[in-house]
Every structure is written in structure tokens, then in C-alpha cells.
């Protein structure tokens, strides 16, 4: 079985936000980088670096969700069930990289679901797909 997630090399990020745009288009059919499931932090004027923040699949969100609105899919992604999510924000409070998002148009939270559209458009290799093979229990 393969577990996948996004791998980040911050030094390669140029802050273009194509990743955030395609993320919103893919999931919400809308050009709106605020409806995204990853973010780019910009640290300017000093030291002058971009830091992509992505889901590390730590699972804290699932642990604290009071509604059982999050489950882990076999590829490693943590999937939000919009119908169950009450937008309470408890998961946001425990998300260390800060990559669970709310938007005023939506009544559920947004978490990366491993679609990897963002990695396809990243032209510098700042975000790529990381694959880990896990032995299945027999």
C-alpha cells in the first residue's frame, strides 16, 4: 500500500500561488485562492523566504473532531465529510502547520485530499508528491 503526501522544499518556492489557484479551481470550480487547502507564507522584507505549508498528515484533526467528520483514506489523506462537519474549528486550533481553512461561503473546513493538482503546476519542484510504501497487514 502506498501512502502519499505533499513534500516541500521551501527554498525552491517563488511565491507564485499557482498551487493555491488550481487547488480552488479543482475543488470549488472557482478562481479564488482563499478556497485553498495549502498556503504560502511570505517572510519579507527579511529574511526574504517563502514557506509552503501543507498537510503533514499528523492526524491531530481527526483526533479532536467532535463530530467524526474526518476520516483517513488508505492513501494517507484526511478527508472531511462536509455533511457532518459543523465548522466548529477545533481541528484548526490543533493544526500545527495551519493548513485547515474556513471560508465565508462554506460551512465546512478544507483539508488537503491528496489530489496533487498543485504539484503538477509547480514549476520549481517546491512541492512534489512523496510516496511511502507500507506493508499491508495480512
Amino acid at each position: 500500500m502506498e501512502i502519499k503526501r505533499i513534500k516541500v522544499v521551501s527554498s525552491k518556492c517563488t511565491g507564485c500561488r499557482l498551487c493555491m489557484q488550481i487547488c480552488a479551481i479543482s475543488h470549488h470550480e472557482e478562481i479564488n485562492p482563499r478556497k485553498t487547502r495549502l498556503k504560502i507564507e511570505a517572510h519579507f522584507p527579511e529574511p526574504g523566504v517563502y514557506k509552503p505549508r501543507v498537510c503533514t498528515q499528523c492526524g491531530k484533526c481527526l483526533e479532536v473532531c467532535p463530530e467524526n467528520a474526518i476520516y483517513r483514506r488508505e492513501d494517507g489523506a484526511f478527508i472531511v465529510i462536509p455533511e457532518k462537519c459543523t465548522n466548529c474549528g477545533e481541528c484548526i486550533a490543533v493544526c500545527k502547520p495551519g493548513v485547515i481553512f474556513q471560508h465565508r461561503d462554506l460551512d465546512y473546513v478544507l483539508i488537503c485530499d491528496n489530489c496533487f493538482k498543485c504539484t503538477e503546476l509547480c514549476n520549481t519542484g517546491a512541492i512534489t508528491i512523496h510516496t511511502r510504501v507500507v506493508k499491508e497487514d495480512k
Binding site: T14, C16, R17, F44, P47, G48, N123, T124
Partner: peptide
Amino acid sequence: LITHKACFGCWMNCGKYTK
């Protein structure tokens, strides 16, 4: 050079952030 820097939605990153 410190980092390459792009405008919104640009994959060519012509900007060079420097000191």
C-alpha cells in the same frame, strides 16, 4: 541572490530577491 520571486500565477519567476 536570496530567493527567486514570482508574481501571482507566474511560473517564470523573473524576480530576484536580493541583498
